[in-house]
Design a protein around this nucleic acid. Structure first.
Length: 544
RNA sequence: GCGCCCGUAGCUCAACCGGAUAGAGCAACUGCCUUCUAAGCAGUAGGUUACAGGUUCGAGUCCUGUCGGGCGUACCA
């Protein structure tokens, strides 16, 4: 419909002022329903170019709009020079019919059809259980992946990890220390070691498997492996609880083994973007507008994490993804430009990389900000949170807000939130509809009849229909902007429209044609709610 | 010091990349259950969009400065 209006306006302008350059025409849904179903501000933007007052221009454009299709019921000039359009009942009826026939596919788009997209997220190194801090990353990544799937993309979810660094050695040493302690050896806990209880659990398992034989230093790799496997198992289980399944796990180490790292150094050296100084290898990031050059290989011979990051992103693009999305916490905000610069310097199209930076979650406990550290083990795990409030509320909580805003997570409040959480408002709407459906099936026999949506003229019905018709565009828009919280806002509005309908209109007791039309209106509503909640990774219960 | 993000109702946050009267939820107050789930509906109250300038037909949104909070700013990951 918006495209149709754009065309109409464009044609009107061409016949009015053939010589001018036509600006981009934007159609938007007015905030207030008094201003119609769609509006444009072209007349305002053209005032200067045409040297005429906006209302007069708007009037002329309005006069050129062709309403013979029967889909537009009114065109009027309002305010300082807006043109407001109202959609006709015929249009609503036609669109609702097609939504009804689309069934559970209603809302699926083709914007990214045929595109291969990768979303990389979580990517926490296996040093401990996932914390509430990782939650926002995990849920954002998975929901964006779901959104992209709904726009037709072929999406892969990838988890990137490093199991080789100093961190992992300290982790192994921590497990070993607990192991030795458990068999009565007096040993020092490693400096800066991991103190969590899960370390003791892993040590216990090692002992069950290997007995008391692993006394010497040379057995460290056994502890390392046990730690990594145990922790990954935990992480996967936590993700599964949240409705998240990764497609691939990518080990940073592969990049060293297959020579990618060396290849990139060579490539950058050929381009003259690399030099040696003080025994280290530097990347001339100043050529990309950075204040300082960046070290890629330390004087110790070890690469910094930027080098594998660049190699990793090149690897992604070489795997043929049209789009590679990263979900990063605010701490990466300064480093990803280096990666993008590196990718570009190596001759790849860095516009295929899209980075979503979300702000950190501030954990508040007992009214005070709470600093977490995996090493010190004073963290709140995602599992603990889900034990308290459930997976649905957990996902919903992280998705409610725009990624770019600082999010305050009050543990105590989230724990009590339970029944007062806004997610129940959406789920309740779905359950209510299903309950009506069960009753309707006992009172009517609709087989064979086709619904006549033209009977739906009550204000509450019309409002609900209009909401439902926004869904497909909402999905596309939310997916392209990668801002899932907008979908929540939409679903909330939809649920409100439904609850209002429920209050004003009844089905049981009505004549069959109207009952039928209303029932199928609710079928579409339930589909949209279930689809929307599905995208958010939240269940749509039939009973509550 | 410098860079990035944020500052909107008592609290948590929206506002469709510059549009019309800044909106929801929670908390407070007032009504509505003999009829499809009251986990709901209707209503009241709550704002100088941190502050000061600027850009223009029009600013919560863009620019400059100030204040406040977060994150970076390492040959740590």
């Amino acid at each position: 419909m918006h495209d149709y209006l754009k065309q109409q306006i464009e044609q009107a302008l061409k016949s009015m002022a053939p010589d001018i350059e036509i600006p981009e025409i934007t159609i938007e849904k007015p905030r207030s329903p008094e201003h119609g179903d769609a509006a444009t501000n072209v007349a305002l933007t053209l005032a200067k170019i045409l040297k005429d007052n906006p209302r007069s221009i708007a009037g002329k454009i309005a006069g050129h709009i062709d309403v013979s299709s029967g889909y537009i019921s009114s065109v009027e000039v309002a305010g300082p020079g807006f043109i407001n359009f109202r959609f006709s009942g015929t249009w609503l009826k036609d669109r609702l019919e097609s939504a009804f026939h689309a069934g559970r596919d209603y809302g699926k788009g083709r914007h990214l059809e045929g595109k291969k997209v990768q979303v990389e997220f979580v990517s926490a190194n296996p040093t401990g259980p996932l914390t509430v801090g990782h939650g926002r990353n995990a849920v954002l990544g998975d929901t964006i992946a779901r959104l992209l799937e709904w726009t037709g993309a072929d999406v892969q979810r990838e988890y990137y990890f490093n199991n080789a660094g100093r961190q992992m050695r300290v982790l192994a040493e921590s497990v070993r220390a607990r192991y030795l302690q458990s068999i009565g050896h007096d040993t020092d806990f490693p400096e800066g070691g991991y103190e969590g209880l899960y370390i003791t659990e892993i040590a216990k398992k090692v002992r069950e498997q290997h007995g008391d034989q692993l006394l010497g230093e040379e057995h460290l790799h056994v502890f390392r492996k046990a730690a990594e496997e145990g922790i990954f198992e935990d992480i996967k289980r936590t993700l599964a609880r949240m409705n998240i399944t990764m497609d691939t796990f990518f080990n940073e180490n592969t990049l060293y083994e297959d020579g990618s790292i060396d290849k990139i150094i060579e490539l950058l050296r050929e381009k003259g973007l690399i030099y040696e100084q003080d025994g280290a290898t530097w990347f001339k990031t100043t050529t990309f507008g950075k204040e300082k050059d960046t070290v890629l290989i330390k004087s110790s011979g070890e690469p910094t994490y930027r080098l594998p990051d660049i190699a990793y992103h090149i690897n992604k693009l070489e795997r043929g993804f049209d789009l590679a999305i990263d979900i990063f916490g605010a701490d990466h905000i300064a480093t990803y430009p280096d990666v993008v610069a590196g990718v570009q310097a190596c001759g790849l199209d860095s516009s295929r990389i899209d980075v979503i930076v979300y702000q950190f979650v501030t954990i508040v406990k007992d009214g005070k900000p709470f600093k977490m550290s995996t090493r010190k083990a004073n963290f709140v795990t995602l599992d603990e949170l889900m034990d308290e409030v459930g997976a649905d509320v957990t996902r919903f909580f992280f998705l409610m807000r725009a990624p770019g805003t600082h999010l305050e997570f009050d543990i105590n409040e989230a724990k009590q939130a339970g029944e007062k959480n806004p997610v129940f408002y959406l789920q309740y709407a779905h359950a209510r509809i299903q309950s009506i459906m069960r009753k309707v099936r006992n009172h009517y026999d609709f087989t064979g009849a086709t619904p006549d949506f033209a009977l739906l003229t009550h204000e509450a019905e019309v409002t609900l229909i209009k909401r439902l018709l926004e869904f497909p565009e909402m999905v596309t828009q939310t997916a392209m902007q990668r801002e899932p919280h907008k979908l929540i806002t939409y679903l909330n509005d939809l649920a409100t429209a439904f609850h209002k309908f429920y209050h004003d209109c009844r089905i049981l007791g009505e004549e069959e044609p109207l009952a039928r039309a209303r029932t199928e209106l609710l079928t579409v509503t339930a589909n949209v709610l279930a689809n929307g909640l599905g995208i958010l990774g939240i269940t749509a219960p039939d009973r509550m």
